[in-house]
Amino acid sequence: MKAVRVHAYHSRPVVEEVPEPTVTGPFDVVVRIGGAGVCRTDLHIIEGQWAEKSGVALPYTIGHENAGWVHEVGSGVTNVAPGDTVILHPTPTCGLCHACRAGDDMHCADNAFPGIDSDGGMAEYLLTSARACIKLDPATRPEDVAALADAGITAYHAVRKAVPLLPPGTTCVVNGAGGLGHIGIQSLAALTATRIVVVDRNPEALKLAEQLGADETVVADGTHVEAVLDLTGGHGAEVVLDFVAEQGAQQDAFAMTRRAGSHFVIGYGSNIDIPTIDIISTERNVVGNLVGTYNDLAELMVLAQAGKVTLHTRQYPLDAALDALADLDAGRVRGRAILVP
């Protein structure tokens, strides 16, 4: 089968032929990929940012946003069968540890992360587990929903955590309206009555944000922090969802947060430098966010299949994976790039 493989960091991946995965364990599931999302994390992987954390041996196949059809199952699998349409939670988990039993499965003590620390889904087939599979309506097109498996679940997970902080009368700033941010906007609109203020440097992204539920939009032109403070009476927002968190955006996000507010860090790539006195004197919170739970993804799929959250995508054939990565890196993708084998 064809797969997108990283052979060396700081080098372009290679689309090449590799053996198809096979079932070896009772709970294994092999999925024929119908759509694989292209994520900024894939760029970070190629740059070597994940090398030490993942410990993955090169070469390997990237791709952690995957949906498709069940191809083969192990002897113990009862929740899906060959032919079923599925979206895959990004982290196959053990189901036995404290985190899994608490429903906090992205912190499983014995999980895998295909596309990060093992072979992923930018390929024709992917080996996963029964615990990662969410069965979908057979009419669902995998390429239409694949990016919900990471971009979607990550954005939804952050919004879900922020919901108790966002009663009517509050303001939430969405910093970055790209692949994750445009899903965050829709999730906020579906789950809260907060005022949604979207900040992005790209006017086209802000036009999309308006269509998806943004109440106010602000161009990130160097005066955006002051603009957000003006919109909030000089106080800042109760919650800032930072889908950028690099190249200075992470500092701006904290500056846009009001006293006792919460800065949710979702994007990554740079350090946050905050004087401790600025944290304690205002009691502001900095909250990390890692993907989301299986239940988060199941809830998000309910919203998606009800039409309340939609992905804006640009599709590429698997052979054009390098073009998709280059377009993402250059900011030419509105919404999410999807590879279709």
Rank of each mutant, 00 (worst) to 15 (best):
A147L: 04
M1L: 09
G152T: 06
L136A: 08
R334S: 13
H107I: 07
A326G: 11
S54C: 11
T276H: 03
K207C: 07
G76A: 15
H71P: 03
Y268T: 11
S129A: 14
R284A: 00
V286F: 02
P21D: 06
I183A: 07
A67N: 07
V197C: 13
M256F: 01
D296V: 01
Q251Y: 06
I274D: 05
Q305L: 08
D42S: 08
G35F: 02
G152V: 01
P82Y: 11
W69H: 14
R5F: 01
T170L: 03
V15D: 05
T61D: 08
R334C: 06
V291M: 11
S187F: 06
A321W: 05
T310W: 03
G176Y: 01
Y268R: 03
H312F: 09
H71K: 14
D200I: 08
L229A: 12
Y9L: 11
A67I: 08
V56L: 08
A320K: 14
G288Q: 04
L165E: 12
A99Q: 12
P13F: 05
D28R: 05
V340S: 10
K207T: 13
V86C: 11
P168F: 12
P90S: 12
V31P: 04
V287S: 03
E226T: 15
R32L: 06
A306N: 13
D104L: 10
V244Q: 02
G288I: 01
S75D: 15
A155W: 04
G176P: 06
G34V: 01
C133Q: 02
I33Q: 01
A158W: 06
P13D: 05
V265M: 10
H107S: 05
G152I: 05
T91R: 10
H157V: 00
G178Y: 01
L43R: 07
V173S: 06
C97N: 02
A255V: 00
A112G: 13
H107V: 00
V309H: 00
T24I: 07
P26G: 06
H235K: 14
S54Q: 07
T257V: 13
G121W: 02
I46R: 10
D252R: 10
A326M: 07
L339C: 11
I280T: 08
D327F: 08
L325A: 08
V218Y: 09
D230A: 15
V15Y: 05
P92V: 03
A214G: 10
H224N: 13
D110K: 05
A130W: 02
D150R: 04
Q49F: 10
H182V: 04
L96N: 11
V56W: 05
M122N: 12
V199K: 04
S11C: 11
N175H: 12
A8W: 00
A205C: 13
L191A: 11
G115Q: 03
Y156P: 00
P142H: 09
A189W: 01
Q305A: 13
D273C: 03
T192F: 09
M106F: 07
I280H: 00
T170V: 07
P21Q: 03
H312R: 13
L290C: 08
A306L: 14
A99H: 08
V163S: 09
V199C: 14
D323G: 03
A326K: 12
Y125H: 14
G269H: 06
